[in-house]
Nucleic acid binder design. Structure first.
Length: 617
DNA sequence: GCCGTTTTCGGCCCGACTGTTTTCAGTCG
């Protein structure tokens, strides 16, 4: 784990422990905010904190004050935080897993701990089994039953759903709500972290405008696949829904696969349910609700703070004048909203440029003077990372070319694996030379798309490339990627990647960390150094669009974009349907604030081919 | 614990749902 992530995790744990101890909730909130700030930092904390002005630099970050800065410097210097150690001595470690149970908040956790001596999950289960939990105030049969159910559900859950699994489910649910009989649904859309395009999703939020809210709720709770109705109110319902693996797009990428793909598929099958929330919204509040439920929470807080400074109050029904009447929310007292029907109108009323959903993470988006022209799927006109039957793909060269042409690409790079990736059928030098000839031959058969002869060359553990330079020089394009030795320490990994980037024949650094979301952490290089080197050597950093990878990740993309680095968005095509993953790659790019010009896949054929040839002269 | 275009002290985002209550605390998003 990177130092930043480790420090953020510790601050977050401090917040949680303070919460259990019943400390001031604003202190808790401050620690949570600081943790998020550290998590979002693009500079390396170690480098920053140890520099002469490190402390002052830390204080410039919103949410980090003198106390937190001290804790961070202490952590970087000594590897520990005294405050955390002291808190850990007071609170049993097992209570953290108890707090993770939905329905068990800090107050209840403190209660079972103090009154029943529960110190971990096993203790809680025992207290449920022998009826002691029922003896607590505000604990009835129903409350205990819910906790029991939540424990069972948690045991089945394998964590957050990957974007590529959640998206098709959400699209299907939204479509089903549109067609709900008798409910008169006028609008239906998904919101939440899915709309923001996060790489993993905790639950799915569906919003509808319906003539008959009750019928809409009824239709929602009785959809195929609903396993349990968690809550069913007038405006809000929550269900747990089975995940049907057939809904998610999966391609057999044997490189990930061998055991990895099978494990990932098994993982998705094992995770049986996902929580889906429905909100029924008045048509006039559509924009406010969409905004509110899209989040993120941090972004919403920023907007509400801003509204408050302007004498306004913002909730899921609209932006209202703040008349300080505390008895009831404004929409229940007939107060007329300043703005509510569209997101655009609310941003405008707040004096802000419209913020695309992918940017709503409180990473500076409310400072924007104008809405940036972010990259879109339609901007992409080339695919620069694809495999054929020569290694581990399922299409021939001609099939691949025809398919990518039908997807509107002017260029397709054929980049089969190199010799060290034996499991993926990597090509020996002789086979690669024959493949180069075969690609030239295929070009004669296919018109209207340029075929490039390339390779996805392994970056060996040492940082050396998997072919000799004379062979690499024969290729139109070289994508250099790490495939093995992915548990190297950070320093070794950094050296390895820097060496590959500095190689004069390399165009693109493919899936730079080699991570697999929810499965493999991958390399954790000093990303600032990698980005600086890529910029210096005119190497594009790849966003691998497969939803298992999304590598670079969003925060790395943002740092690379800020540094002026070139970015490639590639589907790493092995099979036809892999081209559909482009949406996820572009979404990740948008989360990193990428504009079209900085992405080589949007360039005209002339510009792209010219750039590639520069490294062949 | 952090922060300042009313503030260096006194605030700090907002509403729905649930289960237990007899008016609300706790949790969630």
């Amino acid at each position: 784990m990177s130092t930043n992530a480790a420090a953020a995790e510790r601050l977050s744990t401090i917040a949680t422990l303070l919460e259990i101890l019943g400390e001031d909730k604003f202190r808790v909130f401050a620690h949570q905010k600081a943790a998020r700030a550290v998590e979002a930092m693009t500079q390396d904390l170690t480098t920053l904190a140890q520099s002469k002005w490190g402390g002052a630099e830390l204080l410039k970050i919103d949410g980090i004050g003198p106390k937190t800065a001290d804790k961070l410097i202490e952590f970087v210097t000594t590897g520990t935080m005294t405050e955390l150690e002291e808190l850990k001595a007071k609170v049993p470690a097992g209570l953290l897993e108890v707090l993770a149970i939905p329905g068990m908040g800090p107050k209840t956790v403190a209660l079972v701990w103090k009154d029943l001596g529960v110190v971990d999950l096993a203790g809680l289960k025992a207290a449920i089994a022998d009826g002691r939990l029922l003896t607590l105030p505000r604990m009835g049969e129903k409350a205990v039953g819910k906790i029991k159910m939540a424990i069972e559900m948690l045991a089945q859950s394998a964590g957050r759903l990957r974007l590529g699994i959640a998206m098709p489910i959400a699209q299907r649910v939204a479509a089903q709500m549109h067609n709900a009989k008798g409910a008169g649904v006028k609008r239906a859309a998904f919101a939440g972290s899915l709309r923001r395009g996060k790489e993993t999703i905790g639950d799915i939020d569906i919003l509808v405008v319906a003539a008959d809210a009750q019928k809409a709720a009824e239709a929602f709770c009785t959809m195929p696949g609903v396993r349990q109705v968690i809550a069913k109110g007038e405006n809000k319902c929550s269900v747990r829904m089975s995940i049907d693996l057939d809904e998610s797009r999966w391609s057999g990428d044997p490189e990930m696969a061998g055991s990895e793909t099978k494990a990932a598929v098994a993982d998705a099958v094992k995770r049986p349910t996902v929580q889906v929330d429905l909100r029924v919204i008045p048509a006039s509040s559509w924009g406010a609700a969409l905004m509110y439920f899209t989040g993120s929470k941090e972004h919403n807080i920023k907007l509400r703070e801003r509204a408050q400074k302007m004498g306004l109050t913002l909730n899921e029904y609209g932006l209202f004048p703040d008349d300080k009447a505390a008895d009831k929310p404004p929409q229940q007292r007939g107060v007329k909203a300043v703005a509510s029907a569209t997101e655009e109108s609310i941003f405008t009323a707040l004096g802000l440029a419209f913020v695309p959903p992918e940017l709503r993470e409180d990473r500076g988006e409310t400072e924007l003077k104008a809405t940036p022209r972010l990259i879109e799927v339609a901007d992409i006109t080339s695919e620069l990372h694809a495999h054929t039957t020569a290694s581990d793909g399922s299409m021939s060269i001609v099939e691949l070319a025809e398919h990518m042409k039908s997807r509107g690409m002017h260029t397709i790079a054929v980049t089969d694996h190199s010799q060290s990736s034996a499991i993926a059928g990597g090509l020996k030098p002789k086979a690669l030379r024959e493949h180069i000839a075969a690609i030239a031959q295929a070009q004669k058969a296919v018109k209207g798309i340029t075929l490039l002869a390339g390779s996805e060359v392994d970056i060996l553990a040492s940082g050396e490339l998997d072919y000799q330079d004379d062979l690499l020089a024969e290729l139109d394009i070289v994508v250099a990627s790490p495939h093995s030795g992915l548990s190297q320490d950070s320093e070794t990994a950094t050296k390895r990647l820097l060496k590959a980037i500095a190689h004069p024949l390399v165009h693109i650094l493919g899936h730079p960390t080699g991570r697999l979301i929810n499965r493999r952490r991958g390399l954790e290089p000093d990303m600032a150094a990698v980005i600086a080197a890529a910029k210096e050597h005119d190497v594009a950093l790849e966003i691998n669009a497969h939803w298992m990878r999304l590598d670079l990740r969003d925060t790395h993309v943002k740092a690379a974009v800020e540094a002026g680095c070139l970015i490639a968005i590639n589907c790493d095509v092995h099979a036809k349907e892999d081209a559909d993953n482009l949406l996820y790659g572009v979404t990740t790019a948008r989360r990193g604030w990428l504009t079209p010009e900085q992405c080589i896949n949007t360039w005209t054929a002339a510009k792209l081919h010219g750039w590639l040839k520069k490294k062949r002269q």
